[in-house]
Simulated assay, not measured.
Amino acid sequence: MKIVLITQDDPFYLARNLDYLLKKLPPFAQVVGTVVADVSPFGKRETFTQKARKTYSIFGGPFFLRYGLKFILSKLRRQNSVRYVLKKHGVPLIHLEGNINRPESLQKIAAYQPDLLISIAGNQIFKRPLIDLAPKGCLNLHTALLPKYRGLMPSFWVMKNDEKYTGVSVFFVDEGIDSGPILVQKKVEIGNRSQAGLIKYTKQLGMDAIVESVEKIHAGTYELIENDASQMTYFSFPTREDVNAFLAAGKTFY
């Protein structure tokens, strides 16, 4: 089974988790190429200065300094680079110019003859020609128990809303946002974790869920879980007021 990954150059969590995933994929699954977009933590393309200003204004000085330092250190440590991990595993980069849905982008991806596409922190909306490009479909990982908490930063929102449980969902992508049928879902007790601790745990759990999904697709025997739109909730990026409420409720970022 030939797989093309679609991800972004996240400096905080993705490199170690992609390394974990590439080590755990079964022998029949070969990652033949990866699209790596520029990091976009706010769900849309912004300049570095815009990202920095928004982080500071919403999350405050201590958060900004902590993650700013982590960002700098990640650039100095090659093992924290997504591209470094891919090179270590011999996975080629697929270089695209502009939107992933452009005909030229689709042609480049199709040249790798993927059987399956897997999006991990992909930061663009996929259109039908891309979704249908691989015969076995296109999977996406979302770190929440869909259909609840569709959208951005589910780890923040489940904690702010004092949920007792969250989880991960691997689903087949459709043209909506986190709306496709679910293939694998795993539940997690939040407990007293910080947001960083919750992200770290669910990211790795998500890699296990992807491996399980690949095995199910290879076997050809699986039952889909309905991603019931009537039960959905959707969250966008938090405001400063949301962050204040998060902290007032005794929740911690790290």
Rank of each mutant, 00 (worst) to 15 (best):
P154G: 07
V188T: 13
Q195I: 14
Y222R: 05
E223I: 05
G151R: 03
Q204Y: 03
D174P: 15
L224S: 09
G220V: 02
G151F: 07
N192I: 03
K203R: 10
P147I: 03
H218Q: 10
H142A: 04
S194K: 01
Y201K: 13
S213V: 08
Y234Q: 10
E175K: 10
V214R: 02
L145P: 01
G197C: 06
V214P: 08
I210A: 08
P147V: 11
V173T: 14
G206L: 04
E223V: 10
V184C: 06
T202Y: 02
N161Q: 14
I177K: 05
M153Q: 10
K186Y: 05
D162N: 13
M159V: 03
M159K: 14
S179N: 12
K200R: 11
Y222C: 03
K164G: 14
A229D: 15
S169I: 06
G151I: 02
Q231M: 11
G180V: 02
D174W: 15
L205D: 06
T202M: 14
E215N: 11
H218E: 08
A229E: 15
F237G: 02
P181Y: 09
D162W: 05
E226I: 11
L224I: 09
R150K: 15
T202N: 07
Y234D: 04
W157E: 05
M207V: 12
T166P: 12
T221K: 11
F171G: 01
K148F: 00
G167P: 05
T143S: 08
V173A: 08
S179G: 13
G151A: 05
K216N: 01
S179F: 06
L198T: 00
V173I: 15
E189C: 04
V170E: 07
R150S: 10
L198I: 00
Q185T: 11
K164Q: 09
I177T: 14
V214C: 01
M159W: 02
N227S: 12
E226W: 01
V188I: 08
K187P: 00
N192C: 03
F235W: 11
V184P: 07
K200T: 02
Y201W: 03
L146D: 12
G197E: 06
G191D: 08
V184Y: 01
K164V: 07
K164H: 13
G191C: 03
K200N: 14
G197F: 05
D178G: 13
S230N: 14
S194A: 07
Q231S: 11
V158M: 04
D178Y: 06
W157N: 04
H218D: 11
V214K: 02
S230T: 14
S213H: 06
P181H: 01
G180R: 11
V188W: 00
D162Q: 15
Q195H: 07
I217K: 00
S179P: 13
F156E: 04
F172K: 09
I199D: 03
T143V: 02
L152Y: 12
E215S: 13
Y165R: 13
I225C: 06
Y149D: 09
E163R: 11
V173C: 10
F171C: 00
G180T: 04
W157R: 01
V173G: 13
V173W: 09
V173E: 12
Y149L: 03
N192Y: 09
K148D: 08
I177C: 07
G191F: 06
M159F: 06
N227E: 12
F237H: 13
K186V: 08
L183Q: 10
I199G: 01
G151H: 06
